[in-house]
Design a protein around this nucleic acid. Structure first.
Lengths: 334, 334
DNA sequence: CTGAAAGCGCTAACAA
DNA sequence: TTGTTAGCGCTTTCAG
């Protein structure tokens, strides 16, 4: 038995295909009698619309692509991804849109993404952790398909709408807290300086520290645990009398904790350690990390909302970014 | 300017639409002259096929759904997901199939998945960490769309094809290693007993231990770090003289390590600890974990291959499971 | 409020 | 080897 078509439903309900279609699309001009008959016919036949046929005429695809730009290893650690995926699938499903996943690791991948989108296979694009200077971004924003990003795209903030946590605020909150605890020699371990988190968390730190934030007090990591450990050792060698360190991610902070232990420094007595993210690792370190919580779920929600608005509104106004506040979470490390 | 259609290409190349279609679909009956003209026309017009129109007639959708059944928190920690996603997107992209992501957390979600698949929106289904007794499985295997699972679906091993690591072998490898190190009172912390990893790792353990694997020596966890810590404390209280413990996941092993440290036991001198997964956490514990490496990438690849074969082969033979060997990785904890 | 009819862009059978 | 043609299942005017 083949899948029933709108034709079968129409026949079963004793109306024309047009009427069935109208009901399906929420057109108001359908009599109650017809409505009832059609609804009965639909459940009797087990009818489901054929999206391809519909898309063919409406020129809508009913799907949104989510493009992941991070290299594989980041995926393992970043709660951002899983949260965004979960939120996006849910929100899109409510609108009967499906989420197509694409990786953009190499140039070939990026080209494929662009072809796919320009080929008219998606109604919208949701970018995740796109790198500064990624040519894909410009190739995408030119076209007729709206694109948004979860998190800022460095250098393209004004051309691609996004939602993000207030990184700068979070960094300020942590730095001020450390200062309020009486710490004076505060160092920082940043993320990569071509990512929003890398750049803006440092900015927040220096905003609060002012001239106290000397070059010697800044070390750079790449979000990995190992890089945090390395950076901490470096800092300790350079500034032996530091009494606090703000690490731009919890994972790197876990590494910093290890370096501190190796050098026999007690945390938080000798050195206070502040993290960022409030990721799962924050509660499993010794001591548990005082950190900054990001509103990950809300960021994801707002990103999707931005995209949906753009999809609905056609060439809507270049909606400004949505920036959401962070929150200090005090545990034992500072 | 509208998107060019096959009609525009045909006109530009001076041939009929049929010929263009034949070239597009790799039909061999196209003369070199026509081929050249069409290729030129395609790049001149920037033509891209409209998948909807194609799907409408071929009755193929060009996409595969990946269904994630795990509750959100697992996603954060499980390398299995990210590996499988990455491998699947790559392998499917090669075949010009796109990957649609769906979450199946609640009953509503599961129904949506079934509707989607039965609605003819996918050519295949790829299940991830589906729970024992999930009604979705039976709803899916009945239909015309092939489904496979990455990892066994407990209780449905014979009805749904899958690829998986040889959990039992891995558990045996670790247990034998512990024994070979001269350990005698070996305890085990298992995963949840409704998951393949929970069940089969315990089976491997008891196969090797025989009657030495008393009930007292077994404790259960739920894959979280905290549950590993709890189970270890329980074990220590019950069997104070144990000299080794095989923990069914690295993350739980990290928890066990903490419990051991709390009790003043040295690892590996007093108690040897063996993990499972060789996940990133294995190298960041103190001491680093001796563990079992799973061939995650190959498992993902074989899963996708299984699915593609089914999609190609129509109602292919109920291909048996593909089981891949694990490998012992010796570090410092045992 | 409803039916009829014209396609959406493509593939595949058939004829040539 | 190629052109012609008949739909795939649906939406959407246009008349009634």
């Amino acid at each position: 038995m083949k899948r029933p078509t709108i034709h079968d439903v129409a026949a079963a309900a004793g109306v024309s295909r047009g009427t069935v279609s109208r009901l399906l699309n929420g057109d108001k001009y359908v009599s109650t009698g017809a409505r009832l008959a059609i609804e009965r016919a639909i459940s009797a036949t087990g009818y489901v619309v054929n999206r391809n046929a519909r898309s063919l005429v409406t020129q809508k695809t009913g799907s949104v692509v989510m493009v992941l730009s991070e290299p594989q290893e980041k995926l393992f650690e970043d709660p951002n991804y899983s949260t965004t995926m979960r939120v996006a699938t849910r929100l899109l499903a409510e609108r009967d849109l499906s989420l197509v996943l694409m990786m953009a690791a190499g140039d070939g991948d990026r080209e494929r993404v662009v072809r796919y989108v320009r080929g008219g296979h998606a109604d919208g694009v949701l970018l995740l952790s796109t790198h500064a200077g990624d040519p894909m971004v410009d190739a995408l924003v030119g076209g007729p398909v709206p694109a948004v990003s979860c998190g800022a795209v460095i250098g393209r903030e004004s051309v691609i709408p996004y939602a993000a946590a207030d990184e700068r605020l979070g960094a300020r909150q942590m730095t001020e807290y450390l200062l309020a605890q009486g710490r004076r020699r505060i160092a920082m371990i940043t993320g990569p300086m071509d990512t929003p988190g890398g750049i803006q968390r440092l900015e927040g730190f220096t905003e609060v520290m002012g001239r106290r934030a000397g070059k010697k007090l800044i070390a750079h990591g790449d979000w990995t645990r190992a890089s945090g450990e390395r950076a901490m050792a470096e800092l300790l060698a350079r500034v032996p009398d530091l009494d606090a360190v703000f690490v731009a991610s919890d994972l790197m902070a876990a590494g910093a904790l290890a370096a501190l232990r190796d050098q026999g420094r007690r945390v938080p007595q000798d050195v206070a350690v502040g993290g960022f993210d409030d990721s799962p690792v924050a509660v499993s370190t010794h001591p548990p990390l005082t950190t900054i919580r990001q509103p990950l779920t809300r960021v994801a929600e707002e990103t999707v909302r931005l995209l949906l608005a753009l999809i609905d509104g056609g060439a809507g106004p270049g909606a400004g970014p949505v920036i959401l506040p962070t929150e200090l979470v005090v545990r034992a490390s500072a």
